[in-house]
């Protein structure tokens, strides 16, 4: 089933909660929902283009130098994202800082290219990349929602308030590094709890 290639990344093999890949940008950029969305957009573009390109040329790349080739392709797309984001979304570019060029070492991308795109046809790789990006987006935005609500008491995306202020004394810790670890720990425990209960039945 073609559809499986798409949905497996979203739920069954979610890159964040199941494969535990790409943690660095996940925790660093999930301070605010709009940063998380910007990051997801970057990862989406790089993952989809690299997966498609690598899959397209998979027969021409000698296996001895495949990793350097993959890295060059990924790094090029990351730089393209950097350049366009600098020009057209300068504020977001400033806020993502070094985590934007660091997409290049995001294990999700190299991992998917190596494990999937270098072996499978173009269309499957395309679907796989889209599924994985959606999975990543769900994870990072989910964590960002928890952190932003708890640390500022509201959610504002690109200036529009989605959830109005409901508390005057939010927990500042959630926006600082410890809050990131805490959030992902609790979310993973909840996922485990669900699957343990399923097993028990």
């Amino acid at each position: 089933m073609k559809l499986d290639e798409l949905t497996k990344g979203v739920f069954k093999y979610n890159p964040i909660f199941y494969l535990v890949l790409g943690l660095c940008p996940l925790l660093a950029v999930s301070t605010r929902v709009d940063n998380a969305l910007g990051m997801s957009l970057g990862v989406f573009f790089v993952l989809v283009s690299s997966n498609v390109i690598i899959s397209l040329f998979r027969h021409w790349i000698p296996s001895q130098v495949r990793i350097p080739c993959f890295i060059v392709v990924i790094a090029s797309f990351v730089t393209i994202v950097e350049l366009f984001m600098h020009g057209y979304a300068p504020e977001l570019y400033g806020r993502l800082g070094i985590y934007l060029p660091l997409i290049v070492v995001n294990c999700i991308i190299l991992g998917r290219v190596e494990a999937f795109a270098s072996k499978k046809p173009v269309f499957d790789s395309f679907l796989d990349a889209i599924g994985m990006s959606i999975g990543f987006t769900l994870g990072i935005v989910g964590i960002a929602v928890c952190r932003e609500v708890l640390s500022t008491g509201k959610i504002a995306i690109f200036g529009y308030t989605l959830v109005p202020t409901f508390t005057q004394s939010p927990s500042v810790m959630m926006i600082l590094p410890p809050g990131a670890f805490l959030t992902i720990g609790v979310i993973m425990a909840l996922i485990n709890y669900r699957s343990i209960r399923k097993e028990g039945r």
Binding site: V20, L176, P177, P178, F181, L182, I184, G185, A189, N192
Partner: peptide
Amino acid sequence: PRSFQDLPIAFISAALLALAFM
């Protein structure tokens, strides 16, 4: 607790470690 075993508890420990480093 079973649902916290392995990675989740590692994340929580990291949170405490990060808090200490702050």
